[in-house]
Design a protein around this nucleic acid. Structure first.
Length: 741
DNA sequence: AGCACGCCGACT
DNA sequence: GTCGGCGTGCTC
């Protein structure tokens, strides 16, 4: 029997629930977990979510307030979603209320009804035609009919004005039985036509694909994690498609997660070509209203396939059948602010909770996932053959020690590029650094383009005559003379994509150079334009950042040049080599697909670095084994578990002082609770101590076991909320950080 | 977080 | 004289 005390999760960083009395006149039976209630909170009103009911409250009776309104009379939030959020909040040591704020559509947090809205949609009636004799003397009606006929899925009421259709012609057509009105949900994907789920026949599998497909299909209906490790072009997507087909045939829904890049439309198009099904795409440009409508439709089973980026993980499904997470190694699955969750890890939890199989796919799986596969936690499915018989690219490590670099491009590389272009083929030049040059230097007095607010140099963007800080976004005009000594001898140091583009233009004046990075594709449609040019297939040069490495296929590229592999070999970040290897393999995978074998030239000052040798001579999986054994030896993840406490403050030393106090607390707790195998590393100033005008520090907690780490965090955080100075210091916890900066 | 309260510096 | 800076306290 539910008691009179309601325990609510509220949108607040405070890691606890708040007790309320039921709103006046609302029967206790309608107060089920997951309903939203409007409540007074401090001096404002917020929307909370009922987590549980109880008989008693610790809170003194005179402080207890009553909720003002019950928002969800009929349908509470799906229990499965609530459960996932509770797990998430506990794992990431985050407030449940705030976790729900990240997980739910904004409009639900603002009190919008959690019920589907209906709209009227105008359709052409069966057998209706513009040649109907009754329209011979009704030109306006005939035009209106033609306009409606253009829209296969009908015209929603709201769009009539935009199409300049007036109500009266439509009414007359309706009376004549030439139009009909359908009532359907707003923003719901169009209902499938009757008949088969397939619009296009499935492709034929090779043996490896069949084995992988059968393994996952056999596990439909129960929790089972799979790691699909398939080289670029080995046909992973076809496996996804045929598994989804099996899910649709079983009357269930599929959730497909993709990285945060422009792959959404491409993926959607491919799915829409194959399936006669209701497909919804969730990405960052979907409006709040649409997002809510899709959320509701998925919850009600009115969508068959949900495709989306990180946050789509929290889309409720009425009858989930399968979760697919493509490019599972991609860092965009990890949220880097607020609730710092990893969608890949949470997808696993969700799959287990909902008893569905989950398929993680990648050509370059993360070391974490490979480790899980080795440990038997995931079934490993390998695809080693390229479909269509294209051969794997050949790698060439080019030692640039003591070679002159011309805007980052060595002599031998210049020759290789020239040969490729002369052979009528395309070249891809990869450089993971935007702008013209990372620094501007006064040759006379040594001044550099230091950012005012960060411990970093501002990057020269020559095309816009600007210096930009890539860390805080500060922009200023490019100085013509040195701000310190006034001399006119400012020199760009180092090279970014803009400089490489300029140099390549000079070196190969007969061929177009296309730059692809965040700056060149910022305007809508510019990426499509660039891709269209590339796909025409004429010889040209592509220069760009990791944007080039993801998803798109360039069949006419036969030479890939990686200008600088050293960052991945020298960095202090223990994940740098893994990321570099993934990037190299992913970029290499863009080349040589149409029968012509691809060549990949990697410039490095450490051309015989063991990891680079391993990667280029024996492939990604050999590299990964080597990297994993190094991680094991150093007790780094996945052989240990990390949590990172970050703090920042306006005054120097303040953040460090705060973390010092936290560290002492943590030490005490470790001793009190006899927690072994935990190390507290720090606090230390962050690798870039000053950023956006704030001084930053961090404290790393490392543990041999996950339970010990979580036990420590569970007791440490409540103390930290009460630490003095907690208000002038902004701090946050990152469980399983993926970069330590 | 959000929002109020409260106590000290340069401005209409 | 006050407008407003951010330290500190609280939210069932």
């Amino acid at each position: 029997m539910p008691g009179p005390i309601l325990r609510l999760a509220l949108p607040s960083p405070l890691r606890r629930l708040f007790d309320y009395l039921p709103p006046a006149g609302v029967p206790a039976s309608s107060l089920r977990p997951g309903v939203r209630l409007r409540v007074p909170f401090g001096r404002r009103e917020v929307i909370g979510i009922l987590v549980e009911s109880g008989e008693h409250s610790e809170v003194p009776a005179d402080k207890l307030k009553a909720a003002t309104e019950l928002l969800d009379g009929q349908t509470p939030l799906p229990e499965s979603l609530l459960r996932l959020c509770q797990w998430t909040a506990r794992y990431y040591q985050h407030s449940l209320g705030d976790t729900l704020s990240w997980a739910l559509p904004v409009l639900l947090r603002q009190g919008e009804p959690a019920e589907a809205r209906q709209e009227q949609v105008w359709h052409l009636a069966e057998g209706a035609s513009a040649d109907d004799p009754r329209l011979a003397r009704a030109p306006r009606q005939r035009e209106a009919l033609k306009a409606i006929a253009q829209h296969v899925h009908g015209v929603p009421q709201a769009l009539l004005g935009k199409l300049q259709l007036n109500r009266s012609s439509l009414e007359l057509l309706l009376e004549k039985g030439l139009l009909r009105i359908e009532i359907r949900r707003c923003n719901a994907p169009p209902a499938p036509h009757h008949g088969s789920w397939l619009l296009q026949p499935a492709l034929t599998f090779n043996d490896e694909q069949r084995i992988a497909f059968e393994a996952v299909r056999a596990s439909l209906g129960s929790f089972h994690p799979f790691l699909l490790a398939g080289i670029t072009g080995s046909g992973k997507t076809e496996i996804y498609l045929q598994l989804i087909q099996a899910v649709l045939e079983a009357g269930k829904q599929a959730l497909v997660l993709i990285p945060e890049i422009n792959l959404g439309p491409q993926t959607l198009a491919r799915f829409e070509r194959r399936f006669n099904a209701r497909i919804a795409l969730l990405h960052s440009n979907v409006s709040d209203r649409e997002r809510l409508d899709i959320w509701l439709a998925a919850r009600d089973g009115e969508v068959d396939i949900v495709i989306g980026t990180r946050s789509a993980l929290f889309t409720p499904l009425k009858s989930p059948g399968l979760i697919i997470l493509d490019e599972e190694h991609d860092a965009s699955y990890k949220q880097q602010e607020g609730l710092r969750y990893h969608a890949r890890d949470l997808a696993l939890v969700r799959a287990r909770q909902e008893q569905v199989p989950i398929l993680l796919g990648s050509a370059t799986p993360s070391l974490e996932s490979l480790h899980n596969a080795h440990a038997g936690r995931y079934a490993l499915l390998k695809l080693t053959r390229r479909a269509g018989g294209a051969s794997a690219p050949r790698f060439l490590r080019l030692d640039v020690k003591s070679r002159p670099l011309d805007s980052g491009i060595s002599g031998p590389l210049q020759q290789a590029i020239a040969q490729t272009l002369q052979a009528g083929q395309q070249v891809l030049v990869f450089l993971n650094r935007r702008g013209f040059a990372p620094t501007l230097l006064c040759h006379d007095c040594g001044w550099t383009s230091q950012c005012q607010r960060c411990d970093a140099r501002m990057t020269l963007h020559q095309r816009h005559s600007e210096l930009r800080c890539h860390h805080c976004g500060h922009v200023q005009r490019q100085p013509l003379r040195c701000p310190d000594c006034g001399k006119v001898d400012l020199r760009p140091v180092g090279a970014g994509t803009e400089r490489a583009e300029e140099r390549l233009n000079t070196l190969y004046p007969d061929y177009p150079v296309l730059r692809i990075d965040r700056d060149s594709t910022a305007r809508k449609g510019s990426m499509e334009k660039l891709l269209a040019t590339i796909n025409r297939g004429e010889p040209c040069l592509l220069v760009g950042t990791q944007m080039l490495a993801k998803g798109h296929h360039f069949p006419r590229v036969t030479l890939v040049a990686i200008l600088d592999a050293d960052g991945g070999l020298f960095s202090a970040d223990f994940r740098a080599s893994e990321r570099m290897a993934q990037l190299i393999v992913q970029v290499a995978g863009r080349a040589g697909r149409a029968g012509e074998p691809g060549k990949v030239i990697i410039q490095s000052h450490m051309a015989d670095h063991p990891l680079l040798v391993q990667l280029t001579e024996q492939g990604y999986f050999a590299f990964a084994e080597q990297a994993l054994s190094e991680r094991r030896a150093a007790s780094l993840p996945p052989f240990s578990h990390l949590a990172l406490l970050r703090a920042e403050a306006h005054k120097p030393g303040q953040a460090e002082g705060f973390l010092d106090a936290a560290c002492q607390q943590a030490e005490r707790l470790v001793n009190e609770q006899g927690l072994g195998g935990i190390e507290l590393l720090g606090p230390v100033p962050a690798p870039m101590e000053r950023r956006a005008g704030r001084y930053r520090a961090q404290l790393l907690l490392q543990s041999n076991t996950r339970p010990a780490l979580h036990q420590l965090l569970g007791t440490l955080l409540p103390h930290m909320e009460q630490l003095p100075g907690g208000r002038s210091v902004r701090w946050s916890l990152d469980v399983d950080p993926i970069d330590l900066f």
